[in-house]
């Protein structure tokens, strides 16, 4: 009798399991797939999404970077190199903001270190390239300030 009970219990448990999967097939709304390359236009990112580092520029192609190198020091991987230059007033300004995407771990520490909001985490996430050189980026659009 006990074994018969156990058998009935087993069968009902198996049927319950079948019910769970059947529920998925009869409710197409439960499908969670998002078709990626097609929905690229409609992709939404949370505001804090951490993609590759970008340097926002205003309409005159100016940026906030003062070449203070705080981000360079904050970076755990040595992904950032600030190359400075002198402007007409012989003041030290940003020459090139070299950002090596290949060694970046997107840890956000450089953005936290920056006192001027000169850099931020962008929403770019398709970071593949064919050569390693493609991943050495220069973030500022023009030299100096």
């Amino acid at each position: 009798m006990i074994s018969l009970n156990r058998f009935a219990g087993s069968v009902s448990a198996l049927l319950k399991g079948l019910g769970v999967t059947l529920n998925y097939i009869v409710h197409p709304k439960r499908v969670v797939t998002r078709e990626y390359p097609e929905n690229r236009e409609t992709l939404t990112f949370p505001e804090r999404f951490r993609g590759q580092v970008v340097m926002p520029h205003d309409e005159n192609n100016d940026h906030n970077c003062t070449a203070c190198t705080l981000c360079e020091k904050a970076c755990p991987n040595g992904s950032i190199s600030i190359l400075t230059t002198k402007n007409i007033a012989s003041k030290r300004v940003l020459g090139q903001f070299v950002y090596r995407l290949s060694s970046c771990t997107l840890c956000n520490l450089c953005i936290e270190a920056c006192p001027f909001d000169a850099i931020r985490m962008g929403h770019g996430f398709e970071m593949a390239g064919y050569t390693r050189e493609e991943l050495d980026l220069i973030l500022n659009k023009k030299e100096g300030r």
Binding site: T21, Y24, I25, P28, R30, V31, V32, T33, E35
Partner: peptide
């Protein structure tokens, strides 16, 4: 297709 629908996916499209 059927397996995908059981698993809340779309399967080949």
């Amino acid at each position: 297709k059927v397996c995908a629908r059981f698993q809340a996916r779309l399967g080949p499209t």
